[in-house]
Simulated assay, not measured.
Amino acid sequence: MRVLAAMSGGVDSAVAAARAVDAGHDVVGVHLALSAQPGTLRTGSRGCCTIEDSHDARRAADILGIPFYIWDFAERFTEEVVETFVGEYAAGRTPNPCVTCNEKIKFEALLEKALALGFDAVATGHYARLATVDGELELRRSADEGKDQSYVLASLQPEQLRHAMFPLGDSWKSDVRAEAEQRGLSVARKPDSHDICFIPDGDTKKFLEKRLGERPGELVDAETGAVLGHHTGVHGFTVGQRKGLGIDAPAADGRPRYVLSLEPVSGTVKVGSSADLGVQAIDADRAIWPSGRPLDGPTECTVQVRAHGGIADAVAEADEDGRVSIQLREPLRGVAPGQVVVLYRQDDQAGDLVLGSAKISGTR
């Protein structure tokens, strides 16, 4: 097959490209330039898509002996990922930009261009597995559950998965680094990227304030209705947040307060105790079924509401309009509208199967 290997400049994508070459595919490497003004150097694990990253990707491609190109996707990335991120926060929701990037950039924009140029598949360094069961393609967790990235891929459509390759799905990260060393790849010990790639300093609040300005409002006790303080915008808070609330007086019982809900129209941030954070039920919409099979009636499953955590057993039911109702077997904390909920079915033989994903619209 003709395979386009997306090479970020990190160790995972470099080894994924190498394995595609070893498998006998005709591989071409491509680095996506996602920033209109990329930084020159990374700072440890902060940020990505720098000029340094593009050079690292090119050096890896040279060692593998494959053609290499840089494609400018900065305008589409800004529109689809960055502006969506800002808009969601302005609306009082908590988005995951990595989910949006995989859906809209790597497996929509990049895949569309790859197919138009005659490629059969796009290979990435994601830790996830694809399995064919009874003739149907399924997305599953990776062997290394600590690195599993099926959560951020669960918004892909069946047709997109049919043109995807995840060569690292059966591997552990330590083995991938060792393999990179053996292959002479200079990125073998390069730190993984963390946080949000377009906010390299990690200060999300400052990033949002620069784009949204000040939108003053009140911090209100959810139980008594008492005004406890003021803030410069609901976009500076997330459900479950404890630190940086700007409330001087402690709670009556002396225990910490947490953000319970955000009301962007009124500018109200409601706070309360940790006990008030527990969520028993989740409502979601815009469901996507990667295997092409929607839920058929109430379904026992495991749900995950964050890329690395927020997992609970549940019963989920979906309607034909893409709405999903989830009843949790045990409460989850810090669940916010705008987050993606991913539904899994446990399967010990082939790894947990991704049933589907949906955007959280409310909690109960």
Rank of each mutant, 00 (worst) to 15 (best):
D62T: 11
V86S: 09
T43V: 01
T78R: 15
C101V: 02
E103D: 10
L111M: 12
R59C: 00
F85T: 04
R19T: 06
P67N: 07
S45E: 11
G65Q: 10
S54V: 03
G135P: 07
E83M: 02
R42Q: 04
A18C: 08
R129A: 00
Y127H: 08
T100R: 14
G39L: 12
H25T: 04
A114G: 01
I63H: 12
G29Q: 15
Y89V: 04
A16V: 05
D144E: 11
E138V: 01
R58V: 03
L110S: 14
K106L: 12
V27H: 09
E103R: 13
E79F: 07
A109N: 09
K104T: 05
V122R: 14
I51T: 15
S13D: 07
D120A: 09
G29Y: 13
A131E: 13
V86R: 08
G118H: 08
P38F: 07
K113G: 01
A74Y: 01
A61G: 05
E103W: 04
K113R: 15
V27R: 09
R19A: 14
D120Y: 10
L117D: 14
G29E: 13
E138Q: 14
V28G: 03
H55M: 06
G29P: 07
L64D: 13
F85S: 00
A20S: 14
G47L: 05
L32M: 12
P38Q: 05
A91W: 03
D144A: 09
R42F: 04
H31F: 05
R140V: 02
S45G: 01
D53E: 07
D22L: 14
D12P: 01
